[in-house]
Computed example of a mutant assay.
Amino acid sequence: MRKLMLFGLTALFAALLAPSAQAQPTDTAAIAAQREAMKKLDWMHGVWRGPAVSQSPQGEHRVIQTERIGGFLGGTLTVMEGKSYNSDGSVGFNALGVVSYDAQAKSWWLTSWALGRGGKFPMQVTDTGYVWEIPAGAMTIRYTATVTNGSWTEVGDYIAPGQPPRRFFTMTLTRVGDSDWPGAGSVTKQ
């Protein structure tokens, strides 16, 4: 009898805790809106490669830029890894980005990490690509991407009040294949 009572109390306790373990119910409408919005970035999925050039006070720097991009969490996110290679084969740059869509605010976001920094930045998805910006004091760093005929061009400009944009980055990538990253290779139940 004592075991039955203990079992009953344990079951009751578990039943009482179950609703609090999941603080909020699944928002299926938001998930559906996120999936639909992310379809606008399906063109990005895959593996890309091509030349990139950056300008700095130290001069011009040329690399081979690569990107691997795929959907995640059932197509509600787009995950990107950008990596550039110097002429000697060493890695010159490596970044991770996650694009998300806020269904309630109807806004896009790019959360990225690179060069010891990270942040969440507003993003605008266009018919031909996207634009995202990083606030940098009195100026803004703006990246504009366009895709045409399997070619992805992205430029970076410094935007300062009262001055014309100053281009500091250009990359032109060609899609070189499919990728099952980052979804492939997840841990199975066994």
Rank of each mutant, 00 (worst) to 15 (best):
L12A: 13
S20F: 14
S20D: 13
S20I: 05
Q24Y: 14
T28Y: 11
A33Y: 00
R35H: 05
A37R: 03
K40R: 15
K40L: 07
L41W: 00
L41N: 00
W43K: 02
V47W: 04
A52R: 01
S54Y: 04
Q55L: 11
Q55D: 12
Q55C: 05
G59K: 00
R62N: 10
R62E: 09
I64D: 15
Q65D: 12
E67Q: 14
R68M: 11
G70I: 02
G70W: 01
G71S: 15
F72W: 15
F72V: 06
F72S: 11
G74T: 03
G74K: 03
G74H: 03
T76Y: 02
T76L: 06
L77M: 14
L77A: 10
V79K: 01
E81K: 14
E81C: 09
K83W: 06
K83P: 01
S84I: 02
N86K: 11
S87P: 09
S87R: 13
G89Q: 09
G89H: 14
V91I: 14
G92D: 02
N94C: 04
A95F: 01
V98I: 10
S100F: 02
Q104K: 15
K106Y: 12
S107N: 09
W109P: 03
L115F: 10
G116D: 06
Q124W: 05
Q124T: 15
Q124C: 11
V125S: 08
D127G: 08
D127P: 01
T128P: 00
T128E: 01
T128Y: 01
G129K: 00
G129C: 00
V131L: 11
V131K: 12
W132V: 01
W132H: 04
I134T: 11
I134S: 09
P135Y: 15
A138N: 11
A138V: 12
M139P: 04
